[in-house]
Every structure is written in structure tokens, then in C-alpha cells.
């Protein structure tokens, strides 16, 4: 496993821990198909939540800013595929979140953006 991937995995573990503490039920990790991947799929109060985990890159760019419209589209497509495969499409309310993880002098800062984007 490359260093980059390893780091990414580590962030996802942080995010997962954070979500569990917030009473989210984790349904899937790294759900992928040919059109894309979703880091975490969770459930809370009957809603299905698709979560993209990002880490701070460099300089002033925040993690969540790197979820570009192209990436959003991939996530939405993947979410549709997931909902259809589980026969949930049109039955549950759905949300797309972004969790951004930043390291700040050994401290971990987690920012959670609920309902971060929707289908155009």
C-alpha cells in the first residue's frame, strides 16, 4: 500500500470514529463500482448519508474545497447505483456530506459539512 493510500485510510478511520460518536450507523466503507467510489455510507434517523472524507492539502485550500463538481457527480452516480442495488431509491431521504480532517500541531480538527451538495 502506498503512503498516500495509507494516509487516506487513516483519515477515513478518524471520520468513522467521529460518526459513530454522533450516533451514525456505518453501512459501507469504500463502496465502489466502475463509475466511482464513496468513502463512507452511513445511516441516521432513517436517512441515508453519503460521506466524502477529505484531508487538508496545502496552504489555504481546505479539504472540502477539493470536492469538485466532477467529483460530486461521480459520488451522486455511485449513490444512485448503491440505492438501486439495495432497492432503497425513492424510499429514503438522502444527503451528501463532506468531512474534512485537518492536522493542526498534533491536534486533529474535524469539520463536518452536512448537505454539502445536491444534484444539479
Amino acid at each position: 500500500m502506498s503512503e498516500r493510500k495509507e494516509k487516506g485510510r487513516l483519515y477515513e478511520v478518524f471520520a468513522e470514529e467521529y460518526l459513530k460518536r454522533k450516533k451514525y450507523k456505518i453501512l459501507e466503507r469504500n463502496f465502489s463500482w466502475r463509475k466511482g467510489e464513496i468513502d463512507i455510507i452511513a445511516e441516521r434517523e432513517g436517512n441515508i448519508i453519503f460521506i466524502e472524507v477529505r484531508s487538508k492539502k496545502q496552504g489555504d485550500i481546505r479539504g472540502y474545497e477539493t470536492v469538485t463538481p466532477v467529483k460530486q457527480k461521480k459520488i451522486i452516480e455511485t449513490a444512485k447505483f448503491y440505492l438501486e442495488s439495495k432497492n432503497l431509491l425513492g424510499k429514503r431521504e438522502v444527503r451528501f456530506d463532506v468531512i474534512s480532517i485537518n492536522f493542526k500541531d498534533d491536534e486533529i480538527e474535524i469539520e463536518h459539512f452536512e448537505n454539502a451538495f445536491r444534484e444539479e
Binding site: I76, A79, K80, L83, L89, G90, K91, R92, E93, V94, R95, F96, N115, R118, E119, E120
Partner: peptide, 8 residues
């Protein structure tokens, strides 16, 4: 309003 992928 219907359940599904949030869109407008």
C-alpha cells in the same frame, strides 16, 4: 417533493 437523490 419526492424521496430520491436531492435535486432541484
Amino acid at each position: 417533493l419526492s424521496k430520491g437523490i436531492p435535486s432541484f
